[in-house]
Amino acid sequence: MIKTASVTLIGLILYGILILPFTTYLHNKPFVEKLGYVPSVPAFKTIAADQKELVAASLVLKVLIYFGGLVEKSESQLAIPPDYMSMSRLLHGAVKLDPYNMDAYYFAQSFLTWDVKQYKLANDLLDYGMKYRTWDWCLPFFAGFNSAFFLKDYAAAAGYYQRAGELSGSDLSKLLAGRYMQESGQTELAIGYLSAMVKGEHNPALKKNYQIRLTAFQEAHRIEVARDHYRESRGAIPAMIGQLVSGGFLSPPPRDPYGGEFYLEGDGKVATTSKYAFAKVKNKSLKNAGDVNERH
C-alpha cells in the first residue's frame, strides 16, 4: 500500500518537473511545424472520410488561431512575419475539402492582398469559391475590390461589382462600381471596402487589423482633402505635408498607425513610408504560395 502510494507520488513529482519544459517546447515550436504540413488533397479527402467539412473547418481554425496568436503577442503588431505561405496552403487545402467554407475565402482575402500582394492568387481563389457559393455577394465584392484597387483592371472589377450588387440587393457595390472606378478614387475605394470589412468582422484580431488599415486610409484621405483645399486657395499643389499643417489646412497633423511618415509624391499623390504595413514581409517565401493553387 505504502509502496503504491510512493510510486504514485514519484510519478506526480516527475510529471510536475516534466510538464513545464514540455509545454514550453510545444509553445516555442517553429511556426511551420505548428501549422503542420497539409498532405496531398486526395489523400486528405480519403482520411477525412465523411468528415470533410470538419477537417476543412479545423484547417481554417488552425490558421486563424496561429494568426491570432501572432497578432496578440505583439499587441496588434505583427512583429514576427507570419508564415503566409503555409497559411495560404492550408486554406487552399481547406476549400478543396469544403468549397463552401466562407472562413477560408474571407481569411485568405484578408492577407493575400495587403500583406502578400498575391492579387491574382486571391482572385483565383475567389473565382473558385464563386462557383459554389453562388448566393454570396461577399466573394465578388472582394474580387471586385482586388481588381480595381490592386490590379487596376476596371473592366473586371465592374463585372464583379455588378454581380455583388445583384446578389446583395444593396447599393453598396453599385455605388462603389460607379464612383471609384478611376485612379483618383483609390483612397475612397479602400475606405469604402475597409469600412464594410470592419463592420462585418467579429474576430477581434482581424477587426483590429482592418481598423488600423482603415485609420491609415482615413488619414490619407484627410491629407488628400487638405491638399485639394490647398490647391484651390493657392493654385498649386504643396510639396510637403508640413505646408498643409502650417497653413491650417490639416489639423491635427496626420499620423500613420503603421508607424511610417506620410509624404507627398511629385504629382501630389499621398504616400507613406510604411507602405501601409508594419514589417516588411519577405517576398521570397511568398512566391511559392502561388504554386499551391497550380498544383491542385
Partner: peptide
C-alpha cells in the same frame, strides 16, 4: 463555433453533425 469569422452557425452545424456522425 464563435472562432469562425464569417460562419458561426455553419461551423456549429458542421461540428454537431460531425459529432453525431462520429
Amino acid at each position: 463555433a464563435t472562432l469562425s469569422m464569417r460562419q458561426v452557425t455553419e461551423l456549429s452545424l458542421t461540428l454537431t453533425l460531425s459529432l453525431i456522425s462520429f
